[in-house]
């Protein structure tokens, strides 16, 4: 697989991996049938993402993009995190092979899913703010990538 050194670094030494016990926003996207599930945990205090972690079942790019995405939003405001795009994640990793672009989309979606969960827990409807995201669908068929 023609991965950049940065991708391999984040794959071999993923940052912020594992569960976050005191998370106040958890989002999960992807589907096991397709071979990829990303789960993001965020802890928000005063509108700042003070801590973040992830768990990923998926390819090397999926693990590396999750890791990079957590680094990019850690310490940022919720508003900044909402603006994170898959493109930014890819650029930070010095690019991805074309067949792996969807893995970075998954990382963007996972963060949005965690933020939605955070808003919901605050009693705020996330849809006008975060937009619609494809929720985790265990039985989804023919919808991979």
């Amino acid at each position: 697989m023609a991965y950049s050194e940065k991708v391999m670094d984040h794959f071999a030494n993923p940052r912020n991996v594992g569960e976050l016990p005191d998370a106040n926003g958890i989002g999960e996207v992807g589907n096991s049938r397709c071979g990829d599930i990303m789960k993001m945990y965020i802890k928000v205090e005063n509108n700042i993402i003070v801590d973040v972690s992830f768990k990923t079942f998926g390819c090397g790019a999926a693990i590396a993009t999750s890791s990079m995405a957590t680094e990019l939003i850690k310490g940022k405001s919720v508003d900044d995190a909402l603006k994170l795009t898959n493109k930014a994640v890819m650029e930070a990793l010095d690019g991805l092979p074309p067949v792996k672009v969807h893995c970075s989309v998954l990382a963007e979606q996972a963060i949005k899913a965690a933020l939605s969960d955070y808003y919901r827990r605050q009693g705020i409807d996330p849809e006008p703010i975060v937009g619609k995201i494809e929720e985790h669908d265990e039985h989804g068929e023919d919808s991979c990538h």
């Binding site: 991965y3 391999m8 390819c59």
Partner: peptide
Amino acid sequence: GLEGESLLLSLDLKGVSASSGSACT
């Protein structure tokens, strides 16, 4: 509970060339 391509990459980092039938590969 794991995905084949990440397994192959991990093996490659340890000097092993192998293959997988995962979709991601």
